[in-house]
């Protein structure tokens, strides 16, 4: 999981979805998650997933890391499905639900800087918990870089590669050093916060939208996904023969998005 890449794409991206309001994007993601939770129709669930991928394609985010990060929960969902579902279709539905929800939240994270993602959530949480969210995300970057350096140093010293046990010991020692470093870092951070007047609440202003039309479109798409999921759940007897329709529509949308993306990237190269 390369959180640093996610953050770079979120902060440097300039697509319409990047410019939309963080709150609207979070609401749209919540609607997609609700539709994945509500639906019991494999085709509707897959259709919603394809529509989210189409939005990711149009947002010009790097697709390989996006899909691999969103596909990570599929491994565990498949294990649960294999252990508990009585047939392949039920298992596929479980995996599809996991992937659809993951696609939505990962798209939110790829198009919105993390302080903005957590800013709304922070206001509803106790002070300590909200602040810990920000500190955790920041620490992932700091510790990630430090861990890379420590592991390289430990392996160079132990001659890793030729001696796997010595290599494992060196890696664990690097982890132990990382804990010590983390502890010292935490104390320094608190001192800096106290010097800057920290009084128990980090204030993060929520950014406003720079693309109101995209806000409306994102909310409409999320609502449509939830409406489809509800319709196929409630009136499944009547709608079952038409299950292919949301899937086909989403597939067409994805193809169109891919064509637009490649046409633009081709045009940019020629320019």
């Amino acid at each position: 999981m390369d959180v640093r890449l996610v953050d770079t794409v979120a902060t440097s991206g300039s697509s319409p979805l990047h410019r939309a309001s963080p709150r609207t994007k979070a609401a749209a993601a919540a609607l997609v998650i609700a539709s994945a939770a509500v639906t019991t129709n494999l085709f509707v669930c897959t259709g919603v997933a394809l529509a989210v991928v189409a939005a990711a394609v149009l947002s010009r985010i790097p697709l390989r890391p996006y899909l691999s990060l969103a596909g990570y929960p599929a491994v565990f969902a498949a294990l649960f499905a294999w252990a508990s579902a009585p047939d392949a279709l039920s298992g596929a539905l479980i995996v599809s639900k996991a992937v659809t929800a993951a696609l939505a939240v990962v798209l939110l994270l790829f198009t919105t800087p993390y302080p903005q993602v957590f800013a709304s959530l922070q206001r509803t949480l106790p002070g300590l918990v909200g602040d810990a969210l920000f500190m955790t995300y920041r620490a992932i970057f700091v510790l990630g870089e430090k861990l890379d350096d420590l592991i390289v140093a430990a392996r160079l010293r132990s001659g890793a590669g030729r001696h796997p046990i010595r290599s494992a010991r060196a890696t664990v020692r690097a982890l132990g050093n990382l804990v010590l470093y983390a502890f010292d870092l935490a104390q320094r951070e608190y001192d800096i916060l106290a010097l800057r007047g920290y009084s128990g609440r980090l204030a993060v202003p929520v950014r406003r939208s720079a693309a109101p039309a995209v806000d409306a479109l994102a909310l409409a798409a999320g609502t449509a996904a939830l409406a489809a999921a509800l319709a196929w759940r409630v009136a499944w007897r009547d709608l079952l023969p038409y299950s292919w329709m949301p899937l086909a529509a989403a597939a067409a949308l994805l193809v169109a998005a891919l064509v637009v993306r490649f046409a633009r990237s081709g045009g940019t190269r020629h320019a």
Binding site: L128, D131, A132, M135, T136, I140, L143, Q187, E189, Y190
Partner: peptide
């Protein structure tokens, strides 16, 4: 409160 940054770094370790 002094241990708040420690919550951040330890949580980050667990996440990694």
């Amino acid at each position: 409160r002094r241990r708040l940054p420690l919550v951040g770094v330890v949580s980050a370790l667990v996440i990694v």
